[in-house]
Amino acid sequence: MPGGGPEMDDYMETLKDEEDALWENVECNRHMLSRYINPAKLTPYLRQCKVIDEQDEDEVLNAPMLPSKINRAGRLLDILHTKGQRGYVVFLESLEFYYPELYKLVTGKEPTRRFSTIVVEEGHEGLTHFLMNEVIKLQQQMKAKDLQRCELLARLRQLEDEKKQMTLTRVELLTFQERYYKMKEERDSYNDELVKVKDDNYNLAMRYAQLSEEKNMAVMRSRDLQLEIDQLKHRLNKMEEECKLERNQSLKLKNDIENRPKKEQVLELERENEMLKTKNQELQSIIQAGKRSLPDSDKAILDILEHDRKEALEDRQELVNRIYNLQEEARQAEELRDKYLEEKEDLELKCSTLGKDCEMYKHRMNTVMLQLEEVERERDQAFHSRDEAQTQYSQCLIEKDKYRKQIRELEEKNDEMRIEMVRREACIVNLESKLRRLSKDSNNLDQSLPRNLPVTIISQDFGDASPRTNGQEADDSSTSEESPEDSKYFLPYHPPQRRMNLKGIQLQRAKS
């Protein structure tokens, strides 16, 4: 015994090295194993092979420090690593049964499904019991997946119906949107047309105001020219009257000059006056001389005659003075006559000038009245044309509004008919989907599995289990394997941990 101590140590070291070499393959693929292994699927088989106990299973599945599946799978690998070579062998058998691809990844061999460990530990009855539990578990999982698949199909059909409904609603909204954009385009076109009409109206108003201003300026210029013409006519008439007055005065002077006595007659009258003065002096001298030589009687007679002569001279002087006064009065009367005649001529000139001015103003008033009548006639014609244009424009607008209203009513009726057609199509689609759903539900009910399987069917299934373990590994792997896509769409199922009653199965096998 003492001599065998070193050999035992060498043997233990060799086993430990082999164990480390075995687990080295697992550690190399630890990331892939932790990512894809579900500990809840492996722990029943590991407990059946007595590699882990209930406490280890509870620690792996329910520990609060292991929230994710990767953490739980890593903890399970750590626990199996502590179990040595047996933990490695049982772990590979569980991978061979549940995850053939991972088994091939770790060992590089094809899975054979021999279950040597569980046969050694529990015997064939334990293997049968384990396989029966796994089959029931798989059936329950398949039923749950079928239910989930039916629910998802129903949800899918519902979503398809909602999608069709949303599509129809979208078509309806597109119809309304198209109608909205069309009405918006019509409104924009009408606004552009309105702005264009306003611009045209403004341009016409500006043109009309400009023409009116030009016409008023032309009328004012015409009036100024007419006033200048009238003033020139007035000056012409005044000059004609002055010329006529000057002509009359010149004719009067000419007549006075023609009626003036001649120079010879004046000289002859002056000679006669001198001769008479000479004779008068001679007679006076004779009379003076006679007075001195005459007697007293003759002197008395001469005195009487002288007195008579003096009286006659006085009378004559009075007559001469009277004649002079009369001549002066006649001259003054002639001057007054000439003055009055001049005033008369001036008044006649003024009267004729005023008459011509009156005629001029009368003509001017007639011209202004004619212009006013023409302006009123043009204004009435413009008003009439404007009223006709406004009436025609309003009539066109009324007809346009009428046609637009008819078009809008027809478009609304068309839209309502399209919407009604879309709604009826939606109703038809809904009815078809309901009919299809009812038909599929009836087919699913016919094809669904019963909840409680008979014992004979279970025994028959387990009677055929042994050949399947040898020759149909691919079928078992397809039913027991969970793909990543299934984990996305289906909830994980945790079967209840219970042991099955095998009395009925044993009785059935005894009868057979």
Rank of each mutant, 00 (worst) to 15 (best):
Q139D: 10
K83C: 08
K69F: 05
L131R: 06
V60A: 01
G84H: 03
R75Q: 06
I70W: 08
C28H: 04
G126A: 10
L76E: 04
N29D: 01
D56T: 04
R35S: 05
G126K: 11
L80E: 02
L80F: 01
E24I: 09
H81G: 03
R30Q: 03
Y88I: 03
K143W: 09
N38S: 06
I118D: 15
D20P: 07
D20W: 11
L66I: 06
A21E: 09
N133F: 15
L22S: 11
T128Y: 15
T112V: 13
E125A: 08
L46M: 12
A73E: 03
R72A: 02
Y36D: 02
A73L: 02
I118F: 00
L77K: 03
E96D: 05
K143A: 10
D58P: 01
G74D: 06
Q140K: 12
M65L: 10
M132V: 04
Q48F: 08
R113E: 15
M12Q: 05
E122L: 05
L46W: 08
K143D: 08
K104R: 00
A73N: 12
L80N: 03
E19D: 13
A40F: 07
S94N: 01
Q48Y: 06
L66Y: 14
A63F: 05
Q85A: 00
Q139N: 14
Q85C: 12
R30K: 00
L127M: 15
D17P: 11
R75V: 04
Q55C: 10
Q140P: 10
D20T: 07
Q139C: 01
N133P: 04
L80D: 01
A73P: 02
Q55T: 13
L76H: 03
M12L: 09
R35V: 06
E24P: 07
M65S: 06
L22H: 10
K69Y: 03
H81C: 10
Q55G: 09
L80T: 03
S34V: 13
T117N: 15
R75I: 01
I70T: 06
K50S: 11
T117P: 15
S94L: 05
T82I: 06
I118K: 12
Q85H: 13
E121F: 05
L66N: 04
T112I: 13
L42T: 07
T82V: 10
I136K: 07
D17G: 10
P64R: 05
R30N: 04
K145E: 07
R47H: 07
G123Q: 15
G4C: 11
G5Q: 14
R113W: 00
M8F: 07
T112F: 09
Y103S: 00
A21F: 04
Q55V: 10
M65Y: 04
G84P: 03
R30M: 00
E18P: 05
L95V: 00
A63I: 00
P39L: 01
P111V: 07
E57K: 08
Q141T: 13
K145T: 09
I70C: 12
Q85I: 01
K16E: 10
D17R: 13
E13R: 08
Y11P: 15
L92G: 01
Q141D: 13
E27L: 04
P6L: 12
H81P: 03
T112Q: 07
R114N: 06
N62A: 14
H129Q: 03
R75T: 00
L66D: 00
E19R: 10
K109N: 00
A63Y: 08
K16Q: 14
P44T: 08
K16R: 09
E57Q: 04
I52M: 10
D58F: 00
E24W: 03
S68A: 11
D146C: 09
L46I: 08
C28G: 10
E93F: 00
K137A: 14
K83F: 02
R86F: 00
I52A: 06
E57R: 03
R30H: 01
V90W: 04
V51N: 08
V119T: 15
E24G: 06
G84M: 01
S68C: 08
Y11F: 13
D9N: 09
M142W: 11
D10L: 07
L127K: 12
L46P: 07
T82K: 11
P67I: 12
T112C: 14
R75S: 01
L15A: 11
R114T: 10
L127H: 14
P39A: 04
T107P: 02
I136P: 05
S94C: 15
E18W: 12
A40N: 07
N29V: 05
E125Q: 15
R75E: 04
R30W: 03
E18K: 13
Q139A: 15
R86C: 11
P67E: 02
D56L: 07
A40W: 03
K50D: 12
P100A: 14
R114V: 14
G126V: 09
G84R: 02
D53V: 06
P44L: 04
I52F: 08
P67N: 09
A144W: 11
E19I: 15
D9H: 13
K83I: 02
K109A: 00
V60L: 01
G5F: 08
L77I: 08
P6S: 12
E121L: 04
S68D: 03
S34P: 03
T82P: 04
K16T: 08
Q140W: 03
K145V: 07
L15D: 12
E134T: 15
E122H: 06
N38T: 06
F115A: 15
Q140L: 14
Q139V: 08
Y11T: 12
S94A: 11
D10G: 13
Y98H: 11
Y88E: 03
D78R: 02
D9C: 12
V26S: 00
Q48D: 10
E101L: 04
L46T: 06
A73K: 01
G123K: 15
G74V: 12
F130T: 15
Q55Y: 09
S116D: 10
T43V: 13
I136E: 00
S116L: 13
M32V: 07
E19S: 08
Q141R: 12
E125L: 14
D78V: 05
M12E: 04
N62R: 05
Q141P: 08
L33T: 03
L95Q: 02
A73H: 02
T112N: 14
